[in-house]
Write a protein that binds this DNA or RNA. Structure first.
Lengths: 336, 336
DNA sequence: ATTCGAAATCGAAACGATTCGATTCCTCAT
DNA sequence: ATGAGGAATCGAATCGTTTCGATTTCGAAT
């Protein structure tokens, strides 16, 4: 593979001239420029990006770290990131999380092969991120609450308003006339689902219904766990008229169990959270709380861009959710 | 940000010793090793990956180039790639395609910031790829037919057997008793859908039914185009009993139109191609030809790994598909 | 003590670009 | 012809590692 040196020799000019042709063509005379360009073409020379990165101390690349690439709404998120990144002349690269911590993709972050990072992976501790973040490598954390001391100079966050979303869900239930809900929440350690649940209860509290009278079951965000939770609920034989699930996948499990027991959403309504693409397609279509993932992505990239320009202590952002009403929460005939 | 030089000075050893501590700890005495490690920790020194890449002439990174990250089956593909990559101590990074050709993610490929590439994007010409591929940067192309001269020394491919899949689809239709099919195919320039259609017709030809008697309509792979094609077909008022769509998304459009016209798959059966995750969820669940995307990914990564070890002229692979029978192709009551 | 060999450490040369400041080359006005 | 001044080109330092070969150190064997 030819180097800039080969080009220089072949064209009978110095290395610096070749570099100038590449980066600041106006600074070199027409004559030598075409000559050098010709040699570049015949040798099929392409500058070595790594060498350039080393010299100029940046790569024009930002890393997007996801827990796994298979998440249902990542494509939207990435779309938002890409749109802004393009306008900033930055190339986003997406990394999943490989098992080996040492040899994993975090290497790119640790060894500063990238100029910035957007992290959506609850498996990476904020402490670790804070260690990697710096003036030349700011980090934006997604969907997590940054404790104030850790909202460090070079780190900020974007998240959706989980509590508000839960509140909207509760409101919607109440509007539709469901006064005896049950809740399927996520694992205890998942702060997002806790917040969703909290907001949900707040809506009911405002309506004079205490959270103590509402059944809560923990799932683990999977479809199966949602189904299992629903079976449990049905077995208890309580007089409930609706189920709020802390995410859509569990809600899908709920719908399946309902179907299996020949029950309809007119008896027990179902609502999810996230608005994954499937939600629109299942039968009955799932009412859910929409997460504006595209906007999360674009906002994150905007903040990252600012940080890369040198801005420090950027305050975290919280984005509003909205309820998407479909057919799984039909209005209850008003009681007489 | 401290460099290896700072560490050396602080620890009172030479640069080379620090490097040894990092890369070949056994080569340095216990005493200085702990000393150096201590300094590394207190300074929070992390070696600069870019410098290392430049020196050792590789990055331990392979690029995965996708048309857009939102494709329905990419997560499986990437899963397969990641699994093998991990076992090879390689980090896959996923790149979408940004609009600016020059400043886009292909930069990583062109400027050799990666050690290998897997490309699934029909928008990149084979000619261009062939230009970038080389002994230090082999390329595996997905889902494309490599013309023999271009199946270059450093380039190979993995694809699924589109023709075979089409044939399986045709076979299945015939088995179920559908002797009057219509076909919705992709754009003329999409070789994959052409092959699918060809295989489909081959099955019917073997059964004595000529392709000339079968209606073919072109779509553009989108749901809407599938719906539109189906409307057209219905308007023609032909005596058809099944529709084969060259991909699942168009088939979903077909199902919607069927539903809209209060028609059932018992009247006109529907079959897709790809087995996107939605296929299982729609009502009625879509019979389709399954693409083993995980296997495509793992195979691609295996071939890439071999190429990176120096193996040349690796023959392309073709992977078999299989029919997933769901409810959109119910068996026809046998005619008397 | 001396010597030998292995172990530990070090110096310096890469890797392939960019860029600053210096030098050379022109052109034109005097 | 000469000098000034700008344009074009060049040399050399630098980015932060790795690694080869050379040198030093050290303990054990003589």
């Amino acid at each position: 593979m030819p180097t800039i040196r080969d080009v220089a020799r072949e064209a009978g000019v110095s290395i610096s001239t070749v570099s100038l042709v590449l980066r600041q063509p106006h600074r070199v005379s027409e004559h030598t420029r075409v000559r050098v360009e010709e040699v570049i073409r015949t040798l099929n020379f392409r500058p070595n990006g790594t060498a350039r990165d080393l010299r100029v101390r940046k790569s024009g690349t930002v890393g997007v770290f996801l827990r796994n690439l298979s998440g249902p709404y990542y494509s939207e998120l990435i779309g938002g990131i890409e749109q802004v990144a393009t306008s900033l002349c930055l190339t986003p690269i997406v990394c999943g999380r490989s098992v080996h911590e040492e040899q994993g993709s975090l290497r790119l972050l640790r060894e500063r092969r990238i100029d910035g990072a957007i992290v959506l992976d609850s498996g990476i501790t904020l402490r670790e991120l804070a260690q990697y973040a710096g003036p030349d490598l700011p980090v934006v954390v997604l969907n997590r609450t940054l404790p104030d001391p850790l909202a460090s100079t070079y780190m900020t966050g974007v998240k959706i308003d989980d509590d508000g979303g839960g509140y909207q869900a509760g409101k919607h239930f109440i509007d539709q006339g469901f006064l005896h809900p049950a809740v399927i929440t996520g694992p205890v350690e998942a702060e997002a689902s806790q917040a969703r649940q909290r907001g949900f209860f707040r809506a009911y509290a405002e309506h004079g219904i205490a959270s103590t009278s509402v059944l809560v079951i923990h799932g683990d965000f999977t479809e199966e766990s949602g189904a299992k939770a629903m079976e449990t609920i049905l077995n208890l034989n309580l007089a409930i008229d609706a189920v709020f699930s802390a995410n859509d996948q569990m809600a899908l499990g709920v719908l399946q169990v309902l179907d299996k027991h020949k029950m309809r959403v007119e008896q027990i309504a179902v609502m999810g959270f996230d608005d994954i693409s499937l939600a629109r397609y299942v039968q009955p279509a799932l009412t859910t709380v929409h997460q504006p993932m595209f906007e999360v992505g674009s906002t994150a990239m905007e903040l990252l861009g600012q940080a890369m320009q040198g801005k420090e202590r950027i305050p975290p952002r919280t984005l509003a959710t909205s309820v998407v009403i479909r057919s799984s929460t039909p209005k209850k005939p008003s009681s007489p």
